[in-house]
Simulated scan of single mutants.
Amino acid sequence: MTKLLVVATSNPGKLREMQAYLAKTDWELTLKPTELEVEETGDTFAANACLKATEVAKATGNWAIADDSGLEVDALNGVPGVYSARYGNTDAERIGRLLNELGSEVNRGAQFVCVVAIASPDGTIVLQAEGVCRGEILHAPRGNGGFGYDPIFYVPEKQLTFAQMTPEVKKSVSHRGKAFAALLPQLEQLTRTD
């Protein structure tokens, strides 16, 4: 039996991405109502993911899923972190600001982090998973794919930036892919017990 899962986003691209991760489950995803806005006031990715899932579940009376993710740069003490999307007005501005702040810093280590949370219809968080992808920040963008910081986030084990990877490769190594890989067994367990 198919069950409805409201995605705490108005972004159809994110819905498609989540649907791909959950393709082999009995969950059907739908976007949250556009008028329903949840402010990300948490100081961690987990806090923001849980906040969004809880608010959307309570407002719609359905199961809800939310994620929060961002880039943490070692030499900048984890910045931009939860402010990754708000680090500039465009992807180019965000990348430019980050490269400018790193300057000629030798330590280019960084990680993308993603936390996914699922709330029951009453807003209770029932599942949560985290995925981390370690990499390095390049001195200049490389590749035409992806979005956000993808052109400057280099994964040494693949010798590619996120922007150079095929969707399949990115899914296998990315923070979001790892978070969903951790979430799926829990979700299957939940489906069986519900």
Rank of each mutant, 00 (worst) to 15 (best):
A85K: 13
N144H: 15
G148D: 07
H139T: 14
E157Y: 00
E93W: 03
I137A: 00
S120L: 12
R94C: 04
R134K: 15
V169M: 14
V82P: 01
N144I: 09
K158T: 14
N144R: 08
G103T: 07
K170A: 00
R176S: 04
V116T: 13
L99M: 08
P80A: 02
P121H: 06
F153W: 07
V82T: 08
A140S: 15
A140K: 15
R142A: 06
N89M: 12
G123M: 11
F112H: 10
L98W: 08
V82H: 07
V115T: 14
M165T: 05
H175Y: 10
L160Q: 15
Y83C: 10
I152D: 04
R97H: 13
P80D: 05
N89W: 13
K178A: 08
A110K: 04
I125A: 01
Y83E: 14
S104Y: 14
A140I: 08
A119E: 05
V173F: 02
N144V: 12
T161Y: 11
T124K: 15
R142I: 06
K178S: 05
P80H: 00
A129R: 00
V173I: 11
L160C: 10
G146E: 11
G96I: 02
G148H: 12
H175P: 10
Y87L: 13
S174Q: 08
G96N: 10
L160K: 13
T90D: 12
I152G: 08
K178Q: 13
L160W: 03
L138N: 10
G146N: 12
Y149H: 06
A92E: 15
G96D: 10
A129C: 05
S104D: 15
Y154V: 09
F147N: 08
S84I: 09
K170Y: 00
E130T: 15
T166M: 05
R108I: 03
V132L: 12
N100W: 14
Y149W: 01
E101V: 11
L99Y: 11
E136P: 02
R142D: 01
Q128T: 14
R86G: 03
A92Y: 05
P121F: 13
I152V: 15
Q159L: 13
Y83R: 15
G109I: 01
T124Y: 01
N89D: 15
E101C: 08
S174W: 09
A85W: 04
K178W: 09
R134I: 00
A85T: 09
V82N: 09
G143K: 03
V132P: 02
P121I: 11
G81C: 07
G145I: 06
D150Y: 00
A129P: 04
I95L: 10
F153H: 04
Q128V: 11
F162E: 10
N89C: 12
E105S: 13
S104E: 15
C133D: 11
